[in-house]
Design a protein around this nucleic acid. Sequence first.
DNA 1: GCATGTCAAGTTGTG
DNA 2: CACAACTTGACATGC
Length: 306
Amino acid sequence: MLRLGLCCLFKDEAVSFRTTTVKVLATLPRDRQLLKLSEICLHNAINLKLALEAVQRLGIGAFRIMSPLFPRMTHPEAGYSLENLPDGEIISGTLETCKHFALKKQIRLSFHPDQFVVLSSPHPAVVANSILELKYQARLAEAVGADVINIHAGGVYGDKRAALKRFAEVYNALPESVRSRLSLENDDVSYTPGDLLPLCEQYNIPMVYDVHHHRCNPDNMTIEEATERAGATWKAAGLEQQCHISSPRSGWGNPAPRPHADYIDPADVPDCWIGRQMTVDVEAKAKELAVVRLIEDLKLLGQTSC
DNA sequence: GCATGTCAAGTTGTG
DNA sequence: CACAACTTGACATGC
């Protein structure tokens, strides 16, 4: 059975996440900074709980938590930890509540750090910052019970093989809290499933198969092959397989159809996914409305009971 | 009130 | 060579 997942935000539900910028924080003395950050983090923790309740009510089976749940936490100057915040204990307690709720309702949680996390970079400072960010997300993942932190392989720098070698070296040195959750996703410009699978198989890294990216950036593998081989990497890691789906905003023709559409065209869901036990994150601009509609569309086709 | 420009970070491809 | 695209907002500022 397919478990469909929502990514980060809602369109109609009364759930919101706040943020702030370094520029604004820098105008405040440290105690005022921490006060402001505390308010935002508490708001976001409470809204994470609201998000999980909404997800559960709508029959959605997974939720991707936005990376800046605690904004600027790893920034060199503005960074902080929950213990430093006036409401730190309430915030931690709220995360604990989220963890229990997600566990009880079987909502699968994941993180997807943004494009600044690049483990294959030739620049040591970039890699160091990326590791710091991953440790932060791993702490969060631990607190809320998320089993996946999904990233891309990064840049190519003119030599894919060398870049993947750098990735592997950094990967091996990651703390267990990160490594036990880290997954690798094929992207739309550089790394195809065929590029990543040998690495994933060798190092036991689960591969998130994004079928939209594969259609934009194909290799000699079929969708069926990629689904199966990616599935085996999850099985080896002892986790439920995770995939991504999205539909292009303006059809499949040229130029490259990268922007996401509001909803998913059910025809874009590969046949071989139907009835498969796995999580599929729905990347669509209409957010929860798109997930709910896809659940209904697949039910109408008699293809799933998610 | 409402419109607008800005926001930590990396990399690639386009114009 | 500069800039938008990536998950897009949300926010502070200025009218």
